[in-house]
């Protein structure tokens, strides 16, 4: 039965919450372009399915909790209940149940995601890092290992905010910070790793599509955090080699002829 009450306002919370996600997932305006960007990595579907699993789980609990809260608020609204408040000690069984169910759920998530975590953070492919990415306020400085595949030698190639990686290959990057906490985030590769000053860490991925996409910082690192943006280019191996060779040649520019000056013709 309908009776006017404040509790209806609280019913809007689960409704709005669900509507928000429905709009975003279906790319409906005004939330078009707010759901996941295109996944171009080999491992991304694992991360996405984990995300979706947890979203469904928490979504169901969110909706259930929202509706339960509404029902109770509605039923016991003071304007329609003249009875005095009764003191209830609580239900031991209920408390045990609502402790065990979340605990079991969390344990399930912990076990369910184990291999995803291991693949993303532990089982590094057995190969040297392609490049070292250094976060600093507010840019990504990138240092390619060069031909000898060792970072820190004279054939290293340096770029700023410009990361090229070969297509269809495992790529390992060493990441570190020059100053403060950053977070190296490749949205299209479902990869994110905090960058901690004084620690050298590794990230790895395998890009499956030729794309140009963003490198962003996902940890508030100062006033310019929002503009700490780089470009990631996934290109075929041959193109990558050519690009790296060009960068190296440019870095070794060792003669300079000033461009010819056009003399003003007064005639």
């Amino acid at each position: 039965m309908f009776r006017p009450s404040w509790s209806w306002l609280f019913l809007l919370i689960p409704i709005f919450g669900v509507a928000w996600f429905v709009f975003a997932i279906n790319e409906w305006p005004p939330l078009a372009g707010h759901w996941f960007p295109q996944d171009i990595s080999a491992h991304g579907n694992i991360i996405d399915s984990l995300f979706n699993t947890i979203l469904w789980l928490t979504g169901a609990i969110f909706v259930g909790t929202g509706i339960a809260m509404f029902l109770f608020l509605h039923k016991y609204d003071a304007s329609y209940n003249a009875d005095p408040v009764k003191y209830v000690h609580g239900s031991h069984v209920l408390e045990v149940v609502w402790s065990i169910i979340p605990a079991a759920t969390l344990l399930f998530i912990a076990i369910y995601q184990m291999s995803a975590w291991a693949n993303a953070k532990v089982l590094r492919p057995n190969q040297p890092a392609l490049a070292e990415v250094t976060g600093r306020q507010f840019e990504w400085r990138i240092r390619y290992a060069g031909e000898d595949k060792i970072i820190g030698t004279e054939d290293d190639v340096f770029t700023v905010n410009d990361l090229h990686v070969p297509l269809n290959e495992d790529v390992v990057l060493a990441i570190k910070s020059d100053d403060v906490l950053h977070s190296f985030f490749l949205p299209n590769l479902r990869l994110k790793q905090d960058v901690v000053p004084g620690m050298k860490q590794f990230v790895w991925f395998k890009p499956l599509y030729e794309r140009e996409c963003d490198i962003v910082c996902a940890e508030l690192c100062g006033w310019g955090h929002y503009k700490m943006k780089g470009r990631l280019n996934v290109v075929p191996r041959q193109e990558f080699n050519q690009w790296l060779a060009n960068k190296r040649a440019e870095q070794e520019t060792s003669s300079f002829t000033p461009p010819a000056i056009e003399e003003d013709d007064e005639s």
Binding site: V122, R124, P125, Q127, E154, K176, M199, K200, F202
Partner: peptide
């Protein structure tokens, strides 16, 4: 910068376990 005495102290790698 590539002379041996220029080398900085190595960082402590965080998630650097033996490769698979």
């Amino acid at each position: 910068p590539y002379e041996p005495m220029s080398r900085p102290r190595a960082e402590e790698p965080l998630n650097d376990r033996p490769p698979r």
